[in-house]
């Protein structure tokens, strides 16, 4: 019987306590905000959309290798010695034409692993977090600043250069080979003549 009355009393009393708490909260200012109109200020280290500053990129491929989901796709073409690609802001000399720098942001997992290995700090995370698209393809960001024509040109350039180099190399090799052959021939000749000489000399002697 006592338990019975106690149960009744506890039931009513704890409900009243609970109601007191919720009633108090009726007058507590709300903690939510009207999102698209009002926005929460983001802290400085915030990790959202990736951005690549192509002026500084040297095409070293370190970010792509660090990425756990393979969302960065980089293609580069070597420059020819005559071309000046300029310098990055921290004084590194560029040596590669970055013909393709695609980030599939739909795959990106925002882990920031690509940011740390970058030697020129050119890939970083910005505070943009509203970038939904209607088509998946539009989420693949092309950062490369080069026009397709330019890319072709650079490729051609490099190939030409390569070809030239090859040719030069080949020529050099040929020359070298020739030289070597020549040298050999000469040597042989020398030896021959020497031999001859010796022979002759021997002959002479004999």
């Amino acid at each position: 019987m006592r338990q019975y009355l106690k149960n009744t009393w506890e039931g009513i009393w704890t409900i009243i306590i609970g109601m007191k708490i919720t009633f108090k909260h009726l007058f507590v200012p709300s903690v939510t905000i009207q999102y698209p109109d009002q926005k929460v200020p983001l802290p400085e280290r915030v990790r959202n959309r990736l951005y690549v500053n192509m002026d500084d990129c040297i095409g070293c491929d370190q970010c792509a290798r660090a990425c756990p989901v393979n969302c960065i796709d980089i293609e580069t073409v070597k420059s020819t010695p005559g071309e000046n690609l300029g310098q990055t802001s921290n004084g590194k000399k560029k040596a590669l034409w970055v013909t393709k720098f695609d980030i599939d942001i739909a795959k990106c997992c925002y882990c920031q692993l690509c940011v740390f290995p970058c030697p020129t700090d050119c890939i970083y995370m910005t505070d943009v977090y509203e970038f939904s698209e209607f088509k998946r393809n539009e989420l693949i960001y092309n950062f490369s600043t080069m026009q397709p024509g330019e890319v072709e040109e650079k490729k051609d350039n490099f190939e030409k250069f390569q070809a030239e180099k090859e040719a030069q190399k080949a020529a050099a090799a040929k020359a070298k080979a020739e030289a070597a052959a020549k040298a050999k021939a000469e040597k042989e000749k020398d030896e021959k003549s020497k031999n001859n000489n010796s022979k002759s000399s021997s002959n002479d002697v004999s």
């Binding site: 903690v31 802290p43 280290r45 915030v46 882990c111």
Partner: peptide
């Protein structure tokens, strides 16, 4: 959840992410 947001903010100022920190 209101209070959890405060913890997540602490994480956010430290490493920039609210849920998946790495």
């Amino acid at each position: 959840f209101r209070d959890r947001e405060k913890i997540l903010t602490l994480f956010e100022i430290t490493c920039g992410a609210r849920l998946l920190y790495n």
